[in-house]
Nucleic acid binder design. Structure first.
Lengths: 150, 150
DNA sequence: CTGTCTAGTCCTATTTTAGGACCAGTTCGA
DNA sequence: TCGAACTGGTCCTAAAATAGGACTAGACAG
């Protein structure tokens, strides 16, 4: 049957997953962060079927995550680049990366790493309180819509 | 056809999506962070088909994201709770939440919010450099496996 | 003991996916 | 300047994933 949609959910997590939580979208975004721009680049690098890629790119453009611009090499082709909204997905990609690094590789097994401009490995993502104190999961809770609880 | 797998990819993002990037897993994890523990709680709250939920819970247990424990109310039933590995998904859920809040709700449209123990809204996730300086996407790049580039 | 609740299993119709054949417009090479 | 190859798609098919519901064994409550 048709996949259940969450586009009208109260929960932002559900809406986010509805938008970009499918099997390919975040990998396309990851590759876009990596500098890939052309249809053929994505297709080759991901090994995705062309029809699937067409559909995903179209949806990401519709969502405002990617936009099509004239090719930077002066040819008549188009390129796909991240918009501001797309670049805002950076923490999502990084958090997945960090969880994957820590939990899905054997000790010593090589993987790509995220480094800063100096080539130094980056630290772990931190969730700060309003006052700037680092929080972990047990310091937080979700306040539901309409909840009067303070 | 069978969905393409990324379990052996070099990229931790790809492996993470292979593990938990399907349509339901992260919503189940979100609900687990929210305190849901029983099969029926997940099933009702998500509106997911029972067969789907069974399959997803089984996979999450296999992955070590959830574990089954005896019910806390003393009944003969089992409950599903997050393991350490599952709790490590906190930044993933939070990053999706923050992106969804900022990009998928109309101005003024209500949504659930993440608050700290004092009921204060939390800040934005921050990626620090090794030295603690906040980084954004343009300050970073991915060093591929086997890459000699510094 | 009997009826209801819980946590499933199993089946089916429909949708989604992967993969490949095909195609029009663009660019390259001689 | 022409033909070949490349780019960025479209369209088709077989197989797999999904939603939804019928059914069930064991737990529990009265």
């Amino acid at each position: 049957m048709k996949r259940t949609g969450f586009a009208r959910a109260d929960c932002p997590v559900a809406r986010a997953l509805d938008a970009i939580g499918d099997w390919w979208s975040l990998l396309i975004v990851r590759d876009a962060f990596d500098g890939l721009r052309r249809f053929g680049d994505f297709q080759q690098n991901l090994g995705i079927a062309k029809g699937m890629l067409t559909a995903r790119l179209r949806k990401l453009v519709e969502l405002g995550v990617l936009e099509q611009v004239a090719a930077s090499d002066g040819s008549a082709y188009q390129e796909y680049v991240l918009t501001k909204r797309g670049r805002a997905l950076f923490p999502v990609v990084v958090s997945l990366r960090q969880w994957g690094e820590a939990n899905l590789f054997a000790r010593g097994e090589p993987h790509s790493v995220l480094v800063d401009a100096q080539g130094e490995r980056v630290g772990q993502l931190v969730l700060p309180s309003k006052a700037g104190r680092p929080l972990n999961w047990s310091d937080t809770r979700v306040k539901k819509v309409g909840s009067r609880k303070r």
